[in-house]
């Protein structure tokens, strides 16, 4: 029997995939070494390290319980903040701004985190190990691999707002934001280029997945609008219940270096570099970031307007009521 792997044995390795097997959950690991995770999403970073032939042959496959040892020791960098969001509302922009900093590691929607957060929907006994595994997983992701890191910022998948209480149980003191946007703009964007959660049947087990007979009569626009409406409503509920900070897309990018700078553990001399990151389009770095709300509103026809008004506007209004009045800020670079 091989001795259990200690965190020191896994220095530089990160979980890239969690999967259930007949003998319990397992993790696949790749060697990231000093890789900075600056790609738009964690899976892009993974694609990048998997280019190295070493990672095509010497990946590791371990039981989930190797995370227990990570959970027991103090993390190199504990999570500074969690970013929840309603999709298409600037969370990738935030990631881009923070990941430029040598002091910050930004995890953008790593699939193993989503898998662990939703494990109990298909495997009820998962609640026994989820809390510790989540602590272990983020301690592992928070390894100081480059040398200068002090903060880990974790951006979740849009649908994970439903699992917020579980993440809070593991990290009760970590502040978090819920980022949202005028739902008309989100819905138009999702209709243009659908994400996993707005394609019926793609997401898998989640409170966001409604019974088939509840959604089978909906038009495409209505379906998308009700998904976004659910996420916004849950965001508002969780903000009230668990002290989340509601942030509107309209506040970006200024809020990152403004009212959220402390939450993101930004020091005074980090601000200019982070702000400069906003000069690039988050998912298409060759393009600059520019607010595109007006285009999206013009694109919406009467059917989309009606669907959004019915399914998503009320939750949006509730979030706006919750949000602290803020003076729109601009970036000065």
């Amino acid at each position: 029997m091989m001795a259990a792997l200690r965190p020191a044995d896994l220095a530089g390795w990160l979980p890239i995939m969690a999967r259930s097997s007949p003998a319990g959950y397992r993790l696949d690991w790749a060697f990231f070494d000093r890789h900075a995770l600056q790609e738009p999403f964690f899976h892009n970073s993974t694609d990048s390290v998997l280019q190295l032939p070493f990672n095509q042959l010497f990946r590791r496959d371990t039981a989930l319980d190797v995370l227990a040892a990570w959970a027991e020791q103090p993390a190199d960098t504990a999570p500074a903040a969690f970013v929840f969001h309603a999709s298409r509302c600037g969370s990738t922009l935030i990631a881009r701004m923070l990941s430029r900093l040598a002091s910050h590691t930004v995890l953008s929607e790593p699939a193993p985190l989503d898998t662990l957060l939703r494990a109990h929907y298909t495997d009820p006994v998962a609640t026994r190990w989820q809390r510790d595994s989540l602590r272990g997983l983020l301690a592992c992701y928070g390894q100081r691999r480059r040398g200068g890191e002090r903060s880990l910022v974790v951006k979740l998948d849009a649908w994970n707002i439903f699992e917020l209480p579980l993440l809070r149980a593991a990290f009760p003191d970590t502040p978090w934001i819920f980022l949202y946007r005028d739902p008309l703009e989100i819905v138009v964007s999702q209709l243009r280029q659908p994400g996993v959660h707005v394609v019926p049947g793609m997401l898998g087990a989640s409170p966001l997945t409604l019974p088939f007979d509840e959604v089978s009569g909906l038009t495409r626009a209505e379906f998308v609008a009700q998904v976004i409406g659910q996420i916004l409503a849950e965001g508002e509920r969780q903000c009230r219940a668990h002290g989340g900070i509601a942030v509107n897309y309209s506040e970006l990018p200024g809020a990152v270096t403004g009212r959220l700078a402390g939450l993101f553990d930004l020091h005074a001399d980090d601000l200019a570099l982070a702000a400069a990151g906003a000069g690039q389009h988050a998912k298409r770095p060759e393009q600059g970031f520019s607010p595109d709300g007006d285009d999206k509103r013009r694109e919406a026809g009467p059917e989309v307007l009606a669907a959004v008004a019915q399914y998503a506007q009320p939750a949006y209004q509730a979030l706006e009521a919750l949000r602290a009045p803020v003076i729109p800020s601009t970036v000065s670079v």
């Binding site: 995939m17 998997l50 042959l57």
Partner: peptide
Amino acid sequence: QRQRWQQRYMVQSA
């Protein structure tokens, strides 16, 4: 190993 990564979404929903 390449297939396992490329087919990760199928693995997850299995």
